[in-house]
Every structure is written in structure tokens, then in C-alpha cells.
Amino acid sequence: MTNRKGDTEESTRPTADRTGTGSRPGTRETPLTPYARLPRRFHDHHIAHSTVDAFGRAHWLLAAREPGPGRGAMKPYDAVVVTVDTDGRDHATELSAVRARFPLIDALPDGGFVVADARSRRSEQHVQIFDVLGRESWAFRVGDAVEDLLADGDGRLWVGYFDEGVFGDDELSHPGLRCWSAEGEPLWAYEAAEGASQIYDCYALNVAEEAVWVCAYDDFSLLEVRPGGAVRQHANELEGATALAVHQGRVTFIGGYGDERDRLVDAELRPEELRPYASGRLVGPGGGPLGHRRTVSRGPRVYVQEDPYTAWTVLDISAPGV
């Protein structure tokens, strides 16, 4: 398994020839804020995946053991989703017969869940929809090499793909970014206009209420997908960011190549370009460096979860003073 964000993120991306805008000695350090924590009574479970949904709820997909590796058929397993609401209360939903070997999870507005396998063959229905009681409702395909799967507030599934899908033999993955209904109906696929950027590897995906934002290899232009599917391209010289936040004409990028993996860059969003104006470094709530992590980008917020993945922290650029 390669190129899974949060697993070996810093070592699986293609190597760039240019480093872009980096942080400088003496620039600011911005600490993350604690957000949600997996209740301790579940710490003996294997954390198969975790996310924060469109409504700010944190979810952990837990199993008795790590799903088996490889691409052959595997025996379905039972799992539990632990949800921590925005008020701190938690509850659990048991899921039956999960099939994903490299699972990604998100919550749906009706209280159900979507679980997808990041890797799949064209013969496999690798996306499962579970109802509020944890029963599978249906299954379908969205393509191989899923980098990100984020449900929006209306239950649409936005799927970004990494290079092994874009250049692979599964045509569903070739656009680099697609939108699906929760019933598996294809709603939209990215198609580059003449002279526009291609999506070869979806590095950063932000699903907000008013738009979907994508920063992708290889030119890293910021693509703004508006309701209805119209795409606006903003030229961007910053390379390698793996998460981004957007708020009132400001875009904040997190990440980069090599020793810039904790880089933080603020840019002004202009009609056709981005204008960087400040840089720094993202640090943990206590001021220490960040370790291996997974990220979820939603509007003005980037949620960050470090190994061992039992807690979420957040950078919220809409908060006063951030």
C-alpha cells in the first residue's frame, strides 16, 4: 500500500524540483488546539481509520485487529464506530461484515456511515453504505487508489485519487477528483479545460459548505469547485501542501516536501492567483513538533490527528487571533 495520507505521507509523494515558499528562522509558530479524544475504554481496539465529518463530529472506526494486507479476498469483519459529538458526548455504532482492507470512513447526514477500501479491483464493490443501525444498505465502486473520501453536508461523496489510480487501469479514477451520491450514482468528475491544470495526485482536498478546494500534483494550482461543478483555477507557486483551510479570501496551506512537512503559509485568494504573505510552522498544542499524522480539511478548519491516532486537534483560521 502506497501514498496513503497519514501513514507514510512524507516519503510517498513524488519528489519536486522546486521547494516553493518555506518558513524562515524567527517566523511564527502556530499551535494546534485540542478538539476531540477517543474515550479510554476503547483504547484496546485497533484504530482502522478516523475522521471529522461535515458537522464537526469525530469518528473512529475500530476493529479487533488490523485488517489483513494484500489485495486478495478477505473475510469480512465486525467493527464499531465511536462518535464523539461536538458537545463531548460519545456513542458507538456496531457495523457488521466490513470488507475494507485499507478503510476510510465518513458519516452521512442521516446518521449512517460510508466505509471505503482505498485499494480495489474493478470486480469489487469496495464502498459500503451502512444505515444508522450499522446494517449494510448497499455497495458500489468509486475507483482504485482513493486518497481522500469526504462526505459533504448533503451526503455527497467527494473522492480524490492518488497517482496509482489516475495512471492505473481503472477508468473511474482517471479524473483525479469525482463526486458521487451516497447511492453510488456518479454526479461529477473533474475535466481539465484547455490549458488548465491536470490532477495527477490529489494532495489536499477541502470540502466546505460553499465550495470544494483541491491542491494537486503537479503544478499545485488551487482549484475551486463551485456548486454546479464550475471550476476556477488560482495559480499557486507553493508546492507539496497536504492540507488547506479557506476563510474570507484567506487560504492557509499546511505541509510541504522534506523538512517543510510542518510548514504553514498564509495566502491571499485572488481571482486568478494566490499571493502568499506570511509563513511559519505548525506545532502541537504544547508547542512540540508534529509526528506522523492524518489530516481532514473542512472550510476554515484543518483537523490533525497524530500517531497513535486517539485524539484530534484543530487549526481554525476563522477563530480570533489565528
Rank of each mutant, 00 (worst) to 15 (best):
L157F: 03
L157C: 05
W158Q: 05
V159N: 03
V159L: 10
G160I: 10
G160E: 12
Y161M: 03
D163W: 13
E164S: 12
G165D: 11
V166T: 11
V166R: 08
F167L: 11
F167D: 13
F167H: 13
F167A: 12
F167K: 10
G168P: 01
D170N: 12
D170C: 08
D170H: 08
E171A: 15
E171H: 14
E171M: 13
S173L: 03
P175N: 13
R178Y: 01
R178A: 15
C179L: 10
W180G: 08
S181F: 06
S181H: 04
P186Y: 12
L187S: 06
E191S: 13
A192V: 00
A193G: 15
E194T: 09
E194Q: 11
G195V: 03
S197Q: 08
Q198H: 12
I199E: 14
Y200V: 10
Y200D: 15
Y203T: 07
Y203S: 04
A204W: 07
L205Y: 09
L205Q: 11
N206S: 14
N206Y: 10
A208R: 06
A208L: 06
E210K: 09
A211G: 08
V212P: 02
V212G: 02
V212F: 06
V214Y: 03
V214H: 04
A216E: 10
Y217V: 00
Y217W: 12
D219H: 08
D219S: 12
F220I: 03
S221K: 11
L222T: 04
L223T: 00
